[in-house]
Amino acid sequence: MLPPHGEGASGDQAIQQALEAAWPADLAVEDERQLRAAGRDLLRADATGFGRARWPAFFGRPDQAIAPAFATARFRIQAVVARRDGAADRAVVHLVWAGTDRGGTYTDGRITNLSFTRTIKRGESTWIPQRRT
């Protein structure tokens, strides 16, 4: 059972458990760990503007001034899983998150899916985020 909206951080573990139960793991543990970390960082950069320079291919010009849509202090990831997306070299990171927008409205239970593809260079595997179309 999911916690009610507005429960705060105390309900995040229940959301994580529900997400894992609904979408069983199908990636290697290390791949999932890497993807979950990258998904968290990418979503934070997208929502708050913090860390966009790390993802120039995804966001474009890192020197471009952008007003963040969400306040960094009122942004948190409630739950995250990474799963295969059809092929071994494609994955999707499913995130549930909460944040306060520029207008001051706080909403939790927001859902974002980020797609990644794997590239292998010199024997090292790297997951690259794919721009939304």
Rank of each mutant, 00 (worst) to 15 (best):
A28H: 06
G11D: 11
K121Q: 14
R102V: 13
L114N: 05
V80W: 07
D26F: 14
A21I: 01
Q17F: 00
A47N: 07
V96C: 02
A14Q: 05
H94F: 12
R76L: 01
P4G: 04
P68F: 11
R54T: 08
T119N: 08
G39P: 00
Q130P: 06
A65W: 03
A73S: 08
R132L: 01
P4V: 15
V29W: 04
A82P: 15
T105V: 08
R52F: 12
G103T: 10
Q130F: 00
R76C: 03
D85E: 10
T112S: 08
G86W: 08
R61F: 07
L19K: 10
P129K: 11
Q34I: 11
P4Y: 13
D101H: 02
A38M: 07
S10E: 13
Q78Y: 15
L95E: 04
G8L: 04
L2M: 03
W55G: 09
H94L: 12
I66Q: 03
T133E: 15
I66K: 14
R110V: 04
R36Y: 08
L27H: 01
R110H: 07
I111E: 02
S10K: 15
A22D: 15
G11V: 04
V81N: 11
R122P: 08
P4H: 07
E124D: 09
D46Y: 14
L35N: 07
Q130S: 14
R84W: 04
D101T: 07
L42W: 05
F70W: 10
G109V: 11
L42N: 11
L42Y: 03
N113R: 15
L42F: 13
A73P: 00
L19V: 02
V93G: 02
V93W: 12
F59S: 12
R44G: 01
T107F: 10
A67H: 14
A9E: 13
P56K: 09
R110D: 06
R90A: 03
R44S: 00
D89H: 14
D89V: 14
F59P: 01
A25S: 02
A79G: 06
T133Q: 14
A69P: 05
S125H: 12
W127R: 14
